[in-house]
Nucleic acid binder design. Sequence first.
DNA 1: CATGAATGAGCATTCATTCAT
DNA 2: CATGAATGAATGCTCATTCAT
Lengths: 218, 218, 218, 218
Amino acid sequence: MKKKSKLIPSMIKDERLIEQRRQQIIEGAVRLFVKKGFYKTTTREIAKECGLSIGTMYEYIQTKEDVLYLVCEYIHSELEKRLLKVMNEEDSGIESLLKSLKKLFCAMDEMRSLVLLIYQETKSLPRDKMKYVLSKEEEITNLFVRILEKGMKDGTIQIDASSINLMAHNIMVIGQMWTFRHWALGREYDLEEFTKRQMSLLLGQFTAGGEWNAGDPT
Amino acid sequence: MKKKSKLIPSMIKDERLIEQRRQQIIEGAVRLFVKKGFYKTTTREIAKECGLSIGTMYEYIQTKEDVLYLVCEYIHSELEKRLLKVMNEEDSGIESLLKSLKKLFCAMDEMRSLVLLIYQETKSLPRDKMKYVLSKEEEITNLFVRILEKGMKDGTIQIDASSINLMAHNIMVIGQMWTFRHWALGREYDLEEFTKRQMSLLLGQFTAGGEWNAGDPT
Amino acid sequence: MKKKSKLIPSMIKDERLIEQRRQQIIEGAVRLFVKKGFYKTTTREIAKECGLSIGTMYEYIQTKEDVLYLVCEYIHSELEKRLLKVMNEEDSGIESLLKSLKKLFCAMDEMRSLVLLIYQETKSLPRDKMKYVLSKEEEITNLFVRILEKGMKDGTIQIDASSINLMAHNIMVIGQMWTFRHWALGREYDLEEFTKRQMSLLLGQFTAGGEWNAGDPT
Amino acid sequence: MKKKSKLIPSMIKDERLIEQRRQQIIEGAVRLFVKKGFYKTTTREIAKECGLSIGTMYEYIQTKEDVLYLVCEYIHSELEKRLLKVMNEEDSGIESLLKSLKKLFCAMDEMRSLVLLIYQETKSLPRDKMKYVLSKEEEITNLFVRILEKGMKDGTIQIDASSINLMAHNIMVIGQMWTFRHWALGREYDLEEFTKRQMSLLLGQFTAGGEWNAGDPT
DNA sequence: CATGAATGAGCATTCATTCAT
DNA sequence: CATGAATGAATGCTCATTCAT
């Protein structure tokens, strides 16, 4: 359960200090990355924004990309925390799904620019760090896999077993689109409307796995 | 129907030459952007890759960002071209939807790295150019809006009128996720499987717009 | 009396054409040099401004500096033309001086930005071209030398013989300062006032070559 | 009395270091500007000449034009310093004038290439910086205005009150011409000769403000 | 631990000039 | 004679990172 970014070495011994300084760095960097993007933000700006000197900042990271990694990790953990908060062992599958969907949309709205950031900048990470970020993305996706499986077991959700994984990804993407398509969706729907309609559409998928794929239409 | 990028001024007078050289530039740049991303690609590299001298390349563009714009424009028009190819006035709404969904997934697969590129780099465009790219994205989305409307009129598709727009966006996003979630989806599904399941799920949404939003589950 | 810039070779045979095209070039270039200075003006801009293609322009010059030379030569000859116009063999020395001073100030005002141009950009000329321009400057200065000598001969002007040259330079400089100190002088004096006062001051110098240099005041 | 160039921001915090490094930059740049002019001097050359790396140099300036500004400012303050050195409250107006004229010519000779530099390159400054340089030029000119006024008050100098300003400008220009007309003057006069004659001519102007402007000679 | 001055490889872009058509 | 596309060396400037204090 340790989340400490052991991935990123530091010159400093005092673990507590590392934790605290890195949090400063993350908060400063997030503001700048959201505003200007990763590439257009300079390390000097980050240092200034988070109230550290350049030298000091570099005691806690090794490269600029480390900052991006810290930021991505933070955003993901923040998102996961929110979803876990509404998870409840005793809920039925469908109850759990409804609750977590609601929370998902809500979180996507609250963390809109942050999630967008992950979307846009993950690709700027070096291969190894990117893997960690993607695996975290998968971990969160798996939260929905487990909910769907629970629903299948307790009979509250019907879905083709081999579509569960896909459905979980769909849910994540439908949630995230509120961030990366907000330029269009925001003009037509507010969060409430968006949530209601998307939930309605998603849940419609659990009733009829209809036989549409009759014949090749091409 | 002329699409010539009049947005981007050129020092050269011969329109035919502009067209041709810019196509060279696009092709070279796409290869590099896909491989290394926009920021990590050098203008010199682009020039070399497309067989022009740096000076000559700059006769056909004004800034590096112009190259990105040309690339995005090209990708979008390529995608639109493919979708328009399967559009047929005489098809019923549902037939049209089935065909174009199929084509969408197919195109997303063929143009996987290209569409991914748009996804990741649109944000690197300057504001004004970004607008054009997003409006093109919307234009393509509207292709699906029109198909859904047709289906509603001819009774082959049932959907809440005020969800049509949302549904069109969902379709686009479900298609695009094959590119930006391929790192996960590609492990579990091949294109055929992905297509079949997504179409099945999507079409399930046209049968029951069920009343799930009963009470607040939070 | 030949003014043709034989200094600058051309690819073209037709002398009349050379004359005409070069005049075009000069007129275009002057406008731009006055506005932006020599270095910040590009050859392309010059070509455009004078209505020639870059290629054609280069048929009539060899380098960008040639254009500057043509321009300087033109301005100097224009200035000389004006001064010569008021020269009259029959005038006495002092009459001639009064007339030509008046004309000098008047010309400096009319050609203010042009003379300023010579002042600021002569130094950008290559050594050999610069020499020609400076020798032209001297030629014009010598106009005043001759006037002063005439005045000494006919007794209408008193001045130490070995100060004549200096005085001629002073006259030129006092005239030119209307161009290069106009940022300050223009606030306090209009051309008429400036002319009257300077003439008054200058002419005061011909009465008393007083013995002020009594002892070293330092 | 602090003159520190607060106009030009620096990345460096240590004010003492800024002062010192900028002096290095000025000295290196002056040598090169004098030799090759502003435009033909490269930022890399400046850095090399003043013994800084290009990166370090840019920590102390923002643009190449800043270097030119620093240089102009330095030259002006150097010139002013020399003139102020011979100013003495107790001298009469005419004494003060004689001393400062002598010093002016002397300084113009010692700083010949520097003053020439200001003359030729001020126009290369961006508008706002140019204003400062011109205002400094005016400030120095005003030194002579004050001397003339003093002479009028104590009766040692006779001059039309509304010509004082003009006369001060004339003095400056007569001094500066030793730099920008040295190509001609240097052939005929040495500094001593030039000084003696110019002082003689200038002082002649304080005796007779003669009535030469009788009738319009044009 | 903290600081911030120093570094220089690297980048996007320009522009005088040429030369094939 | 006229044209304008092509060229690439050269330029001003940036910025991630280091390291002496």
